[in-house]
Design a protein around this nucleic acid. Structure first.
Lengths: 343, 343
DNA sequence: GGGATTCGCGTAAACGCTTTCTGCGAATGA
DNA sequence: TCATTCGCAGAAAGCGTTTACGCGAATCCC
């Protein structure tokens, strides 16, 4: 079953069949219709590889993510795929699982498949591998870890604004003893969020006295929170670098017999699906996967159009208030000042 | 950059280069070494499409799942990919998102790419689409929804054993008023779990009086549990058809001001990652994604070997006891009988 | 030592499509 | 009426591999 059989059946040449498949305008409606019918009757599917080989275009985009096991990413993958499919493109997903060695293989596979562009949605990536793409003139888009230049665009997430909204909310509830559980400091994105937090408190004249490092996963959040609770003094509110961390923190707090938000308020970051269903539901800063995916795809797409010119795109996070945040407890340092704030 | 340039540089024919790439034994170590060097020096990657086109083999496996947003699946995808990559194969993932219309496109894409086999890890699938695969002699493996025949294998999950272990555990804790939140009844897998539950209780002479239908997602579990709690009498323990459902149920219980496990015990099914970190940590029946992926891949792989002969494989779930289950509360119907059971 | 066999490698024909080039008939203009 | 243009469709040359086939040299067996 190939294009030749279709051609024979429609009594045209293979070229004409190809042209109708690719909806070229150089074919009369009648012929087109005849070919369409032949295709239907034979149940013909064009062979993707032969197409790519012949045309030099793959209609394939690469998507590199850190760890498909973190719920943030499947949602991103899903959105990205949806958009790609709508545009008749395919997606090759590579999850490097925080393992630089695997990365090598992922990149190689993408190169072998001659992807038309790659969305690199992971924070750290070997510069050498990036060069591999660039030297082959493959468009790239980064998530907050790159710069707009020839053939590469960058999506910058306004973490500062997100963190600021969270702190604003917390402070508005009367908290002044505010902690932070960061991601792994080896990750740039984690460092950025941490800096944003510190800067945010400084601007308000609050000291950043309770900072612990997590690993952006549940266990790390749990352990970091446990360390925070083990200190002589403890914060009345804690921001986490992502929701997984916040969920871990929730667990550690409950284990100590404390209540959220009565004793401690918790704020996450990302707004993964599960966050709406934790006990209590998590107040968090939403980072829309759908939006990121859309922007990333558009970025890749338009690099081709604009003769390789890259651009910078912005994405704004938004605070989602649920049940894990409440007024600062009385008796805590914050409580003393509360009447002043309210009046 | 293609095989010809490599051939020229190594002063051999393209056939020899191809042979060394495919590690054929029909080439002397010296020549092989010379070719390898040329490949290194040129940084040559063979073009996947041309290979597939030339050989007729794609080294590509399809993986069809219901909904990548359910944490059960990303873990499955990840395992499957890992195994595939280890065997130098690729994976094309299609998530149909419970939407039969999208399914069509997924299947089409797989056919166009001439996948070497497809793992269908979703419960319901249009028979016509399956025929599409079969008529093209593509090996298939189902997850508990098919039968072993020519070119197709089936993985059967012993749901009955899993549910039985859960019920055993619950009954051992003195519960006799046991409820169940099923998945959507239009899904075969959901029906199977439900039947297993009912059969299980019958064998013990317990009535299955509290059954509600969920949708295998958190909101469905929440609503179903709310309905259960709204009845005149309520169970002291509830099994859920999957963990997402159980998590939703947990939320509904807390909203009513009841405690888990003091007032109601909850058991999930699947053991997704997050279940270890809910409040309280979920007692559940583990269904190993890693094992399913491994078996599925092996099944697909061996269909090729064994001249298209399909087989049946078994997977055993295992109970994981955490904190969401405890002794039946006194005062409940169960409590009356408890001393009898204990003595 | 001569014919049969094996071995290593090159030649060239697929594989299924795209795309450029070319040709042909019809429409248009003078 | 003939020359020119134009739109449509066919012929054929790729695209980068794999692989059947074949050839010469080396090896083997009696």
């Amino acid at each position: 079953m190939n294009i030749r059989e279709v051609a024979r059946r429609a009594k045209v040449s293979t070229a004409t069949v190809s042209r109708t498949i690719n909806s070229s305008d150089k074919v009369t409606p009648e012929t087109k219709e005849r070919v369409q019918r032949a295709i239907e009757e034979l149940g013909f599917y064009p062979n993707t590889w032969a197409r790519a080989l012949g045309s030099g275009r793959s209609n394939l985009y690469g998507l590199i993510i850190s760890d498909i096991t973190n719920p943030f990413f499947p949602e991103l993958v899903k959105s990205f795929e949806d958009i790609a499919v709508q545009n008749e493109q395919e997606v090759l997903v590579a999850n490097k699982s925080y393992d630089p060695a695997r990365m090598e293989g992922c990149v190689r596979r993408m190169l072998q498949r001659k992807v038309d562009g790659v969305a690199i949605m992971t924070s750290e990536m070997d510069a050498r591998l990036i060069t591999e793409f660039q030297s082959r003139e493959i468009p790239l888009v980064f998530l907050d870890t790159g710069k707009a230049e020839k053939l590469t665009s960058n999506i910058v997430v306004d973490y500062a604004a997100g963190v600021d909204a969270a702190v604003e909310h917390i402070v508005g509830l009367g908290h002044t003893d505010i902690g932070f559980i960061s991601g792994p400091m080896m990750l740039r994105s984690a460092r950025v969020r941490r800096e944003a937090f510190i800067g945010c408190l400084e601007r308000r004249g609050i000291g950043a006295d309770w900072i612990e490092e997590g690993n952006h996963q549940v266990d790390g959040g749990h352990d970091a929170m446990a360390r925070l609770l083990g200190r002589k003094t403890r914060p009345t509110a804690v921001l986490a670098s992502n929701d997984m961390t916040a969920i871990g923190a929730l667990g550690a707090i409950h284990e100590r017999g404390l209540r959220v938000p009565e004793d401690i308020s918790i704020v996450g970051f990302d707004d993964i699906q599960i966050s709406a269903f934790t006990q209590p539901a998590l107040t968090t800063v939403r980072l829309s996967r759908e939006e990121i995916a859309r922007v990333a795809f558009r970025a890749l797409y338009s690099i081709r159009q604009d003769a390789g010119k890259g651009a910078e795109y912005g994405v704004q996070p938004a605070l989602v208030v649920r049940r894990s945040t409440g007024r600062a407890p009385r008796g805590a340092g914050a409580a003393e000042r509360e009447p002043v704030l309210v009046s």
